[in-house]
């Protein structure tokens, strides 16, 4: 039986969809069978980032309202033999069309057939958030090194800690800019991790390649030469239980990340 991981943040635009696409891709590259579920009803875009928009026939709401079977709505990613699928969000429906109970049942069905279900959560803490979290076993909170994003991450972590079925959440700090951090114009990684006091599972640099790749419908994780790709692949391996210290950014900013090792439990 597989595991469901919700990718959430509170604040919008911090990289939930990008993270979902890339972590899902990286897990598939590790040989895991992955299903991406977009729960951002009305504002779907995981399909676009994955380059799968043109193949959509049915969506999440069609499945929940019985207009089709789950397997009919799943879009297969041709780049991976039979390892990566996407269940797209509905673009037109009202987000109250879905209930947490329905989501729970759907996710638990998907867990029969997949190793990992990656759930892309909408922004906010209302209805959409509750639907996204309903079927999850684990949670990853994404933040950027901005005060407002960290504040919202803190709020979300507080809510996640109340969910009995969800393991204590892990943290990804996205869009790190070394120069700004060094100058003290941005919260540093250490500061954020201490403040939120949950385990850090990865840091991703702010990289134009990420945007370019998303615009081409080719998640950056597929490109082995990019630093961001290595960061996402490392996150996938940490999800699988490997203990990997932070590498990609260390050479660029000696000192800044030295204290970080303790968050990974690495000596």
């Amino acid at each position: 039986m597989g595991e469901a991981i919700v990718i959430t943040s509170g604040k919008g635009g911090v990289g939930k969809t990008t993270t979902s696409a890339n972590v899902g891709t990286a897990l598939a590259l590790q040989g895991k069978k992955v299903c991406l579920v977009d729960t951002d009803i009305g504002l779907r875009n995981l399909d676009v980032v994955m380059g799968l928009e043109n193949r959509i026939i049915y969506d999440l709401v069609d499945v929940l309202e019985g207009r089709c079977k789950v397997h009919q709505a799943l879009v297969k990613d041709k780049r991976f033999e039979d390892m990566l699928y996407l269940l797209p969000a509905a673009q037109t429906s009202d987000k109250t069309a879905v209930t947490p109970e329905q989501m729970k049942e759907l996710i638990s069905n998907l867990k029969q057939d997949y190793d990992y279900i990656i759930i892309d959560c909408p922004a906010g803490i209302e209805h959409g958030y509750r639907n996204a979290v309903a079927g999850a076993d684990r949670a990853i909170v994404v933040t950027t090194p901005e005060v407002s994003a960290v504040r919202d991450a803190d709020r979300i972590i507080g809510l996640l800690e109340k969910e009995e079925n969800v393991e204590s959440p892990k943290l990804i700090i996205n869009r790190i800019r070394n120069q700004m951090m060094k100058n003290g114009d941005m919260l540093d990684v250490d500061e954020i991790a201490t403040h939120l006091s949950i385990d850090l599972i990865g840091i991703v640099a702010d990289d134009d390649e990420v945007i370019r790749a998303s615009n081409h419908g080719e998640p950056i994780a597929l490109n082995p030469n990019s630093k961001a790709a290595i960061a996402y692949r490392n996150i996938a391996r940490r999800i699988l239980g490997e203990s990997i210290p932070l590498q990609p950014l260390e050479d660029e900013a000696p000192g800044v990340f030295s204290k970080l090792k303790k968050f990974f439990g690495v000596k």
């Binding site: 504040r151 709020r155 507080g158 800690e161």
Partner: peptide, 8 residues
């Protein structure tokens, strides 16, 4: 023994 987070 707890962290009181934003909104709590």
């Amino acid at each position: 023994a707890r962290i009181i987070r934003s909104g709590q």
